[in-house]
């Protein structure tokens, strides 16, 4: 199996797409080879040496996730890891939009995690997009962004709920409608209330809500509060002062205001109606988890 890198620099770095492709070999994708650590770090561009970019704590967290879930399906690690990764890797959205950072995490910090988590049992290989891919696919970007888009202010609990359903991550995460916070929260609430249970349910709900969003403006029906300019900055500032991260308890996110409860509830009711009418593949059949490679 692909092993963890034998050399870890102290700080994170960026690895541009055109450089990253060189290291995504068939041997790595089938979990047989390691990543040439020295070459990756030579190609990478270092980030500023500030406590926020220290990578040791991130590696420790990933090790902990793999240890904790070694006897379970690796998909179950997502709900545990997403809020903790988000809390330890304190980024602005503009920083998180840079694919080079995620490439480096996958190839320079934890290629063994990507293989462990995403090796398809059927195909005996990892889809290369888990190493270098869009935000809703790449192994670490998808976790970080699901935490960013499904948290309710400082509360990561909705993130755990969302990431407990693979189709929320695989399908709903990439829909533009969830960029509106009350919409994202309302979707999670239907999961929480078990109105939506399976992967197929979540998939059908996401599609129905997205389609209805073409003629309805959720922002008007369910207003959100104005984004606080300082909350995220302060949270990132704490990261720059150095963090001690406890793994067992659920962390606390940026001290932003929560989405308006009234807005979430109004949309949750509306989405429940939409879902009742939505066609779900295999509705009524035995429940099953979505296949995820």
């Amino acid at each position: 199996m692909t092993d963890s890198p034998y050399h870890l620099p102290e700080y994170l770095a960026r690895l541009a797409d055109e450089d990253a492709v060189r290291f995504i070999t068939d041997g790595l994708l089938s979990g047989k080879d390691d990543v040439p650590t020295i070459a990756v770090n030579q190609a990478a561009e270092p980030l500023p040496e500030s406590p926020r970019w220290r990578l040791r704590a991130i590696r420790d967290l990933i090790d902990d996730a793999m240890r904790t879930y070694q006897d379970n399906k690796p998909t179950q690690a997502d709900a545990w890891l997403a809020p903790r990764l988000h809390s330890i890797l304190r980024l602005t959205r503009a920083e998180a939009a840079d694919p080079a950072l995620w490439n480096y995490l996958a190839l320079g910090v934890a290629p063994d995690f990507v293989v462990w988590r995403h090796l398809s049992e059927k195909k005996k290989t990892v889809n290369p997009r888990y190493f270098k891919g869009p935000y809703h696919k790449q192994a670490f970007a998808r976790l970080w962004w699901s935490a960013e888009l499904f948290r309710n202010g400082s509360d990561y609990e909705p993130v755990e709920t969302a990431c407990g359903n693979q189709d929320m991550l695989n399908t709903v995460l990439r829909l533009d409608v969830i960029d509106h916070r009350p919409t994202a929260q309302a979707l999670v609430r239907l999961l929480k209330r078990e109105i939506v249970r399976t992967g197929r349910d979540a998939n059908a709900l996401g599609k129905a809500v997205n389609t209805a969003g073409a003629t309805l403006m959720y922002d008007v029906i369910a207003p959100d509060v104005v984004r606080d300019a300082n909350a995220v900055q302060r949270w990132i500032g704490e990261g720059d002062e150095g963090l001690v991260m406890r793994h067992r308890s659920l962390p606390v996110g940026p001290a932003e205001e929560r989405a308006l409860e009234e807005s979430i509830e109004r949309l949750a009711d509306y989405f429940a109606e939409l879902f009742a009418d939505a066609p779900v593949r295999g509705k009524g059949e035995a429940t099953e988890d979505a296949e995820d490679d």
């Binding site: 959205r93 503009a94 998180a96 939009a97 935000y135 962004w145 960013e148 888009l149 533009d176 969830i178 960029d179 509106h180 403006m217 922002d219 008007v220 984004r227």
Partner: peptide, 19 residues
């Protein structure tokens, strides 16, 4: 009737609206 301006950045999954 409401007139709403929507700013969206797909790279950062950010959507800001103003009435």
């Amino acid at each position: 009737v409401a007139v709403v301006v929507v700013l969206a950045d797909r790279a950062t999954n950010t959507r800001v609206t103003s009435m």
